[in-house]
Design a protein around this nucleic acid. Structure first.
Lengths: 121, 121
DNA sequence: TGATTATATTTGATTATACTCATATTATAG
DNA sequence: CTATAATATGAGTATAATCAAATATAATCA
């Protein structure tokens, strides 16, 4: 584990916003895009950075890529992980994102199911 | 407390090296300079960054500036602090610094006392 | 006071990061 | 097979971070 790399990955506001979301849920790129109101390429790039430092992993299902916090990262960095969770939870910077996440979740079960029901993004 | 700023301050290898030293001891700029083999302006700059994010404080004594981890930072970021301590302690990247710190401490009680004994840096 | 030491700050060059727009890739559906 | 949607990647640009060298400031000592 490269501690400098981990901190570099976590020192960007947008990546912390993504981390905050993924600490609540497994999400695909388009979910994150919508909740955080960021461009697709930007989200993809940030996810890649987090992934390359071992902080998150993803699983490809059909055309979607579902990202989540890496269990190994949590295990090997328990104190840091707990710090992030407890700090991000109540941090004013992320309140709006948390609200948008709730709204998104209520309106849009998952990309997969959403589309099966005949919708389009 | 600005979490993005704190991570930005900690995402640089040289600043982590400084943090590692200060987690063991209160040190003045010239100590850090010598132990880490960094230029004076570089050490000063990095200390300033850590200070401006509330991670360290300093006290001026005569011509020396003694830096240490801020007690408030430790209190308010206990999990992060404990993570850093436990991770840096055994991290291969910092082994050499730790050895240099030992040597430096043995040979050179403190800048103040060192000079009182008729020496010069 | 003038010289010296420790530290801080300015400057300018270099490198790294983050972003957008455009394009490539992969998978699915028709 | 073709069109479309989700995601990844490339190119170019703007901004930020790092560094060394030089200079400024503050404290001490002779």
């Amino acid at each position: 584990m490269n501690i400098v790399g981990v901190f570099k990955a976590l020192c960007d506001e947008n990546r912390l916003r993504i981390f905050n979301l993924l600490s609540k849920d497994t999400l695909c790129v388009c979910d994150i895009e919508a909740i955080l109101n960021m461009t697709q390429s930007n989200v993809s790039r940030h996810l890649n950075k987090l992934k390359s430092e071992g902080i998150i992993t993803y699983e490809k299902k059909a055309q979607w890529a579902y990202y989540k916090i890496d269990d190994n990262f949590i295990k090997e960095n328990k104190l840091l992980y707990d710090y992030l969770i407890s700090t991000l939870r109540n941090h004013p910077k992320f309140v709006e994102d948390n609200e948008n996440y709730k709204k998104h979740k209520e309106s849009n079960i998952s990309c997969e199911q959403f589309i099966k029901k005949g919708n389009q993004h």
